[in-house]
Each structure stands twice: as C-alpha cells, then as structure tokens.
C-alpha cells in the first residue's frame, strides 16, 4: 500500500469527455500491475469528499510514470479533468490482486466497453510484450464513445468494435463479437471489464464455452484500502446472512477476480 504525491504531467481530452492523464508517481509505477487501480484525491476532503478510483491504463517503470484514462461523468472526474500540469495529487495504490496471465501460447481475448477498457489496454500491451496473441473487443453506445485506434491498437493484434447504434463497427453488442471470436477461433483466455450486466453476460458465455474468464470489477468505493467494507461483491460461495465471507472487498481482495468466483445474479449457478 503506497500513498504518494503524484505530479500531473499532462491531462488531455482524447475523445468526447474522455481524458488521458499522465502522472509522475515513481513508487507506484514500479509496482503497479495491470488490473490494479489508483485512488486519486481531487478535492480537499469536503467536496468532492472521496477519492476517484481509476484503473491504470499504462505504466513506465523506468520513467516513473503511470497513465489513467477516464471519462468526466460527475463532480470528481470533472474536477480531475480541470487540473493542470504540475499539480500535486495524493495518489494511493492498494496494489492488490491484478490480472493473472494464462498459460504460455494461449490466445487472449480482451472484452471491454467504452471507458471500461483502461485495465485491458495495459494488460494487452504487457501480454503482447510476452508474445501472446491478443484480440481486443470493445462495445460502446455510439461511435464518439470509442477511444481512438491510436490508443487501442497497441493493446492487441486485432481490434474489433461494436456500437449499439451501428455508427461504427458491428451494429450490436460486444458479446456478439465474443461469440464470433469463440465460434471462429476456438479456445482462448478472456479478460473483461465493463458494467455489471455486460460482465455477467461475458462470464456466462465463457462458462458455457468452458474458457477461463477474469474480470476487473468496479464497485463503488469510499476508501479503496479495505477499511470501510463498502466495495462489497457477493461471492458464488456465499452461504447466507451469517457468512462473514459472503462478500469480498473489491479494493483489497480484487479488483481482478476469476469470473466463477462472483455471484452475478440471484439465478447464478453456484
């Protein structure tokens, strides 16, 4: 667990309301792994009150730099988008469970949505450096909620996009792309980050196809370090009200989990 004063190097808009921030945070940069997040303080602890948890979308260990990609959606992220270069931002890294690599030679499929791709970008880049074949499938509502090819391309050998309105790539859901990928190319290891419903659908497809699936979860967090017990996610092994282990804390027990560990809905098989 590291809390360091990160220095903002740049913070630029890369798509409609999407920002890419580069931070000098040498202590975090040497340790952070794909799938892990940082918790950035943008206010003085009154308004906004809480920190913003953001997945790390890239890191340069030698240069001591980390990158985050975020969408300005509300008070905290909007405040962050207004911060200028050289500002000092208290940045905490719980450094817990990141994504785990598949066995050597396994084909990798990364499945994300609009602004939920950052952990997959860092992961894809790392896996390619280790000679894994990777495909990146991204869904979004509309074309302008997709990141540019320049940002997506380094993470994968092939990038496939889908939009709900058909304005870019496949007209439909990112899960259609995953079904195609599985039908055409067969076994692979799937890594997924997105809204709950999308991750549930991806987890179900992977269970059915008997391919491994890891998810990077984003529960609402107050502390990000395990002290509030707020970021609870119900586990598939949950055994009722008096089971202290019924919920895991996403911030310290995750944020990456094997999809089979999670109880996605009441009807989820356990």
């Amino acid at each position: 667990m590291i809390d360091e004063q990160a220095r903002l190097l740049s913070n630029r808009e890369v798509a409609a309301d999407f920002y890419l921030a580069r931070l000098n945070a040498p202590h975090i940069a040497v340790r952070i792994e794909p799938g892990q997040f940082v918790n950035i303080q943008v206010g003085a602890g009154v308004a906004p009150l809480l920190r913003v948890p953001l997945s790390v979308s890239g890191a340069d260990r030698e240069a001591g730099i980390i990158e985050v990609l975020y969408e300005a959606v509300g008070p905290k992220t909007r405040a962050l988008s207004q911060v200028g270069p050289d500002a000092a931002l208290p940045t905490l890294s719980p450094s817990r469970q990141g994504l785990a690599a598949p066995s050597e030679g396994t084909r990798v499929v990364l499945v994300g949505c609009g602004i939920c791709v950052p952990p997959l970008l860092y992961w894809g880049l790392k896996l390619r450096q280790r000679s894994y074949q990777t495909a990146l499938l991204v869904g979004a509502r509309t074309a302008d909620k997709h990141l540019s090819n320049e940002l997506l391309a380094p993470a994968a050998d092939a990038v496939h996009l889908a939009t709900d309105d058909g304005s870019l790539g496949h007209a439909g859901l990112v899960t259609d792309l995953l079904q195609n990928e599985l039908a055409e190319k067969g076994p692979c290891a799937v890594y997924c980050c997105g809204p709950h419903g999308m991750m549930q659908a991806v987890a179900a497809i992977c269970l059915e196809a008997q391919v491994p699936c890891q998810v990077s979860l984003e529960e609402y967090m107050a502390c990000g370090i395990g002290i509030c017990v707020g970021c609870a996610v119900e586990l598939a092994t949950a055994k009722g009200d008096t089971d202290y282990g019924r919920y895991a804390r996403v911030c310290v027990d995750g944020p990456a989990f094997d999809a089979r560990q999670i109880k996605w809905g009441n009807a989820w098989p356990t």
Binding site: Y220, A222, A232, E234, A238, T242, Y244, R246
Partner: peptide
C-alpha cells in the same frame, strides 16, 4: 458473524456520504 447488506453500499452526497454496510 454477519455478511452485511447487498451492494451498492456507498454513495457520495454533497459534502458527505451514505453507507449501508
């Protein structure tokens, strides 16, 4: 032992937050 409440357990509000742990 108690498992606690179903998520969502936290939400920020003006100058404060709500919890339902």
């Amino acid at each position: 032992p108690r498992g606690g409440n179903p998520p969502q357990r936290i939400v920020e509000t003006p100058a404060g937050m709500l919890n339902s742990i």
